[in-house]
Design a binder for these strands. Structure first.
Lengths: 131, 131
DNA sequence: ATCCTTGCAAATCATTTGCATGATT
DNA sequence: AATCATGCAAATGATTTGCAAGGAT
């Protein structure tokens, strides 16, 4: 996919991509740490650049969770809606189909085309809400 | 409300609160600019501290929109769901009741208690999607 | 008079950028 | 060999913090 665009295949790019797929959800910093386990010398700015690149190509996507830290995840895996717990910080996922109705209504009423893959819901998970 | 907590009522705090209510949705920086129109000397760090304080007290809330910038808004006004357009950046709002079904299902299926006031949907607005 | 708040400046954290070196095609 | 990509360091932008001076109660 890189070569199709005249771009080069480098070890760093492979590592960043693998890290994102391994970690599931990760901030640029977390990706950097993961990559560093294998290749300690990889610079954080390379991670940023690579994440941006991989997102352009369509191999990863990102969402904004809690305090604004972007978290990246694989784009080729099934899309999902994030459930972020304000109590313990845990991130759960649900099927995007859970939003089908809302999505349809937004489109009909407002013409708003919802990007289902980037939805994050905040709240309290079972254990934190249960009290 | 401040006095109930043994806190003091200051001009800065009033100004920040008014700014948030006036602006509707605003980043800390925008609040700072608004406040500066009246009192130029107010420091940005005071704005941050005050926003945090007002949020503690329950007078304002914040959500994370697009690139992670927190936007604050009045907590006493009716809650709403944000529709953020990736094309033009416009922010629209819809009734939280639009999420009633989803909210109920999340609670039943997962025990997840959705914080409806903090939901932001990303996508394309009518004009940007229409093409 | 007390002690909470502010302003200021410096510290911190996240992210971006310029540029020379090094790697991939 | 020709470019593209990386590492490094410095720049930038957002947010936080320590501390002394000022203000509300």
């Amino acid at each position: 996919m890189l070569r199709e665009r005249g771009l080069r295949l480098t070890a760093q790019r492979q590592l960043v991509l693998e890290a994102v797929y391994d970690l599931g959800h990760a901030t640029p910093d977390q990706v950097h740490c993961k990559v560093a386990e294998t290749a300690a010398g990889v610079n954080i700015s390379t991670v940023y650049r690579t994440l941006e690149l991989l997102e352009d190509i369509g191999l990863v996507t990102h969402t904004h969770l809690s305090h604004g830290a972007p978290t990246y995840h694989a784009a080729l895996e099934e899309q999902h809606v994030h459930l972020v717990c304000r109590g313990c910080g845990r991130i759960d996922e649900v099927q995007p189909s859970a939003l089908d109705e809302v999505s349809a209504r937004l489109k009909d009423d407002r013409g708003f085309q919802l990007d289902v893959g980037h939805v994050s819901f905040f709240g309290k998970c079972k254990s934190c809400a249960g009290g």
